[in-house]
Design a protein around this nucleic acid. Structure first.
Length: 576
RNA sequence: GUACCUGUAGCUCAAUUGGACAGAGCAUCUGACUACGGAUCAGAAGGUUGCAGGUUCGACUCCUGCCAGGUACGCCA
């Protein structure tokens, strides 16, 4: 299983395409997808090809006749039966013996059959990206958790991933922050809880600026000094960044998130004038109302300001400089931005301008819906923000209560570790299991769910399997299940097997669509199927032979769940 | 005003991107020999997919028009 690994779906799709081409040479339209998809209902087989219906027009033949050509063609060994159904579906049934053989191979494959389409390719993923001097709140979890899952997925698929935390470290707020720090800072508080202190300072300074124009002017002057490289302001700014990062890192550590690069907006500061020059050279930007703007009429988008009338640059300029810098330094095949929906227009503009400037890299904006509270949007001003750390604390506390109740004999230290994995896993999974683009309303109940479609359900399934495997070794010492073949006899075994074989497809689809929820859905379905199997088919009590075959299915299920959850950034303790 | 997004079971969400009878979880109700871990399983009930048209073999999905909510729209990021 090396470079040319394909998913079953890909193998069958290739086969269908080839069979149609052989049957109807030169008459298959180019753009038409002639693939195979998994069936929704197992009565219709394991995979189905729906192409005959869409080919009917082009070929001027009845769809069932076209479908028959595929059903009659020589089949790959994986397919036991191909039959035409309904208006022209071709239902494909996998061969149980072939499936068993394939499962045995997967047991020896650390990649569980997942291909490596990303090999030799590079992707930059820009995610999390909190603002310096502001606490991370529950709104930040989506970018961090979704971005991290995309990061892990791409890495596993062979990509060279550069995870870049593009900190908001260069805004107008720093003038106010510097003024505030000089006048109101409490050094002790700054050391123990820097972000809280910076936030307090900022709010105070901001309020002062509203009633005192001289204060605002002074803040502006400090900002200019900072941007011109004044050593004292520079030192303060550096300190704000470092202290903020210290707190961010504490959260990242709890979440199991790490970056290859942590480059804030300031990193691209020196390149801003160059961006403007290039825009002017290419006659893309022009003066309007004192500012320098790029018109995007052809793209049917509003103008984009790249230099303000006071001569200062804004975030559009920074993002353009960032794209250019990344393209030069890493020559990536794609750059992925994970931010909330509010930045859709912004990135559409940036991507359009970057293209005009000659950046050929594929640029993708993976946006997600805003996090809201039941009573509406939250904002610092309304004072209803929920800090991310509090959410994580709460999750662990609730998980710990459950662990203590369920496993009172477990050592306290282990209970703590389990509670951490379960609590953090629940929070992450709550986000990863739904379509990123849907708007989410935050509720404690949902974020911390421990049953149903949740991380703990999946973790529980893993722990139960681990326990089964232990018991097997206890009761049948020295026996190796792998010495016995896998046999799929019970219907539920076959159902479980089909799902195990589909893991590679789930991983590939989740990455291609930038939707971790596709993988989460798959894992939940797998775990549910396993639970049914577990509850209804005896294995340790079965006779030798079926017993080992079933133990092997258990083991493979555990590996798949573990691998899948790990791609979502969720841990699976041996015992929970 | 313009653009983008969302609207699916009482609630929270899926639906392989145009496929077969729209699926899960929560909540509700009924069951499961101390079971290989009950954080589980088996089952019941729950739907005019916001509304109205259209496209076609076939629509939650695509097009048009409404309704409701969200977000963004020249000097904040």
């Amino acid at each position: 299983m090396q470079n040319d690994v394909l998913t079953i779906e890909q193998v069958l799709s290739d086969w269908a395409r080839g069979a149609f081409q052989a049957a109807f040479p030169d008459s298959i339209p180019d753009g038409l997808s002639v693939g195979v998809v998994p069936t929704a209902d197992e009565r219709f087989g394991d995979y189905q090809c729906n192409a005959a219906m869409s080919l009917a027009k082009a070929l001027k033949k009845p769809p069932r006749e076209i479908a028959s050509a595929l059903a009659a063609a020589a089949r790959p060994e994986a397919v036991a039966k191909a039959e035409v159904a309904g208006p022209g579906f071709v239902n494909l049934f996998l061969d149980p013996a072939w499936m068993a053989g394939r499962l045995e191979q997967l047991g020896d494959d650390p990649r569980l059959g997942v291909p490596g389409p990303g090999r030799g390719r590079t992707v930059v993923i820009d995610y999390s990206s909190p603002n310096v001097a502001k606490p991370m709140h529950i709104g930040h979890i989506r970018s961090t958790v979704i971005g991290n899952a995309l990061d892990r997925l791409h890495r596993f698929l062979g990509w060279r991933v550069i995870a870049d935390n593009h900190l908001g470290d260069w805004g107008t707020q720093f003038g106010l922050l510097i003024m505030g720090f000089r006048h109101f800072a409490d050094p002790a508080a700054y050391e123990t809880a820097p972000i809280e202190e910076l936030e307090r300072i900022y709010v105070k300074s901001y309020e002062r600026s509203k009633e005192d124009p001289a204060w605002l002017d002074a803040a502006r002057a400090e900002l200019v000094k900072l941007q011109q490289g004044d050593p004292e302001n520079r030192r303060l700014w550096q300190s704000f960044v470092e202290h903020s990062l210290r707190e961010f890192n504490r959260i990242y550590e709890r979440l199991g998130v790490s970056f290859d690069l942590v480059r804030g907006e300031s990193h691209y500061n020196d390149r801003l004038p160059g961006v403007i020059e290039r825009l002017e050279e290419k006659a893309l930007a022009r003066e309007s109302e004192g500012a320098l703007v790029v018109f995007l009429d052809d793209e049917k988008m509003p103008v984009c300001i790249v230099r303000k009338s006071d001569g200062a640059y804004n975030y559009a300029t920074t993002d353009l400089a960032t794209v250019a810098a990344r393209a030069e330094e890493f020559a990536p095949d794609a750059v992925i931005y994970v931010t909330d929906e509010r930045q859709q227009l912004h990135f559409r503009q940036i991507f359009a301008i970057a293209k005009k400037m000659g950046v050929a890299t594929r640029l993708v904006h993976v946006w997600f819906g805003l996090m809201r509270l039941p009573e509406g949007t939250f904002s610092t001003r309304q004072g209803n923000v929920i800090k991310l750390e509090r959410l994580l604390d709460e999750a662990q506390t609730r998980a710990l209560a459950v662990v203590k109740a369920a496993s009172p004999e477990m050592p306290a230290e282990q209970q703590g570790a389990v509670a951490r994995a379960v609590g953090i896993g629940a929070v992450k999974y709550a986000d990863l299991s739904q379509n990123p683009q849907s708007l989410v309303t935050f509720t404690w109940e949902k974020a911390l769910a421990l049953d149903g479609n949740s991380a703990p359900y999946l973790q529980y399934a893993c722990a139960r399997i681990a326990s089964v495997l232990d018991k097997y070794r206890e009761r049948f010492p020295g026996q190796d299940p792998a010495a016995h073949p896998i046999r799929l006899t019970e219907p539920i075994e076959r159902r479980l097997a089909v799902r195990l074989l589909r893991f590679p497809e789930a991983v590939v689809h989740a990455a291609e669509a930038f939707k971790p929820n596709l993988l989460a859905d798959y894992l939940y379905d797998l775990a549910q199927t396993y639970s049914t199997f577990y509850q209804n088919v005896p294995f340790l009590k079965a006779e030798a032979g079926p017993r080992e075959s079933r133990v092997r299915l258990c083991e493979l299920t555990m590996k798949t769940l573990r691998q899948g959850l790990s791609l979502l950034g969720i841990e699976t303790p041996e015992r929970i």
